[in-house]
């Protein structure tokens, strides 16, 4: 009879595996999978990756579209008060749950990045195939936001701290906070000022005005109406910080939802249904 120490010793010294297990041989070996089983396990990996990318591309895009989609769909909704606030709060939900699923069960620090990547790719496919090819809206009108910067930081926080609470506090905050600067870098040209009909407008306003949307009148925009010029007029940073604050709680909430979703719970099935498949009730009980 061997002890647990022997198991550890047999699994080759930790110092070695930490740096040399590039191809994952040790992981396969320790997992107990034979080379044949490992091959099928890889097929299973491929299927899981395909499912994850497609279902979360669909589900996250739907989620974002119907919670904060207007801010994402139109360049002239990307204001300083609401856009940096509502977008990350919505965008963090699925990535946080995916983080929990992938980390807790598989120790993969990629959940948030997977979610944000699937979302961005799905969004661009839609913009191209629908907004441009179908109805001919220029890309500039529908240029989306991205959450990759925040998602990457969240995954990095997780791998370094390895703790869901601190990932919420630091990673979740970072997710919300960096949304504004990381997207502003990409969209800054759209805020150049122009004069139109004797009034000031940003290029984004002009794009939304020039290419008419029949069912999106100007007044529908829920955009900045603030009056207080705080922190030397850097109002966006206040929104970013507020978004970070809310994202802390959102992350923890959705982390737990991810844990809940990964329960392998079976409820008792009806004896009648089981009997169709040849399971006698006495056997089943």
């Amino acid at each position: 009879m061997t002890s647990t120490a022997d198991i550890d010793a047999a699994a080759s010294p930790r110092e070695n595996t930490r740096f040399k297990d590039k191809k994952g041989e040790t992981v396969i070996s320790v997992s107990g999978l034979t080379p044949g089983a490992a091959r099928y396990s890889r097929l299973f990996d491929v299927l899981v990756v395909a499912a994850v990318v497609t279902i979360f591309g669909g589900a996250i895009h739907l989620h974002v579209m119907l919670t904060v989609g207007d801010w994402d769909m139109y360049v002239d909704w990307k204001d300083r008060q609401y856009w940096p606030l509502v977008m990350p709060v919505s965008m963090i939900m699925f990535p946080a749950a995916l983080q929990a699923i992938f980390w807790v069960n598989f120790r993969l620090p990629i959940g948030a990045t997977v979610g944000a990547t699937a979302l961005l790719i799905a969004t661009w496919i839609g913009r191209y195939a629908n907004w441009w090819i179908w109805t001919g809206f220029p890309f500039t009108e529908g240029v989306p936001s991205q959450a990759l910067a925040g998602a990457l930081l969240m995954d990095m926080t997780l791998i370094v701290l390895r703790n869901s609470l601190f990932t919420s506090i630091i990673g979740g905050f970072a997710f919300g906070f960096v949304f504004w600067p990381s997207n502003y870098s990409a969209l800054a040209p759209f805020y150049l000022p122009v004069e139109h009909q004797g009034m000031v407008a940003s290029l984004a306003d002009m794009i939304g005005y020039t290419f008419p949307r029949s069912n999106m009148p100007e007044y529908l925009r829920i955009i900045e109406r603030g009056t207080l010029r705080t922190f030397g007029s850097s109002v966006s940073w206040v929104s970013a910080a507020f978004a970070g604050f809310i994202c802390i709680f959102m992350h923890q909430l959705w982390w737990r939802l991810g844990l809940f979703a990964s329960q392998a719970t079976f409820l008792k099935n009806s004896d009648v249904v089981k009997s169709f498949m040849g399971i006698k009730s006495s056997v089943a009980s």
Partner: peptide, 27 residues
């Protein structure tokens, strides 16, 4: 991460308590 053994091996290794094999200092 995806280049490594993924779902099943990692879960099995984790069940055996060898998290150290899954997340290294290098990672």
């Amino acid at each position: 991460w995806l280049a490594r053994p993924l779902i099943l091996p990692r879960w099995l290794v984790l069940q055996k308590g060898r998290e150290d094999l899954l997340i290294s200092l290098r990672d």
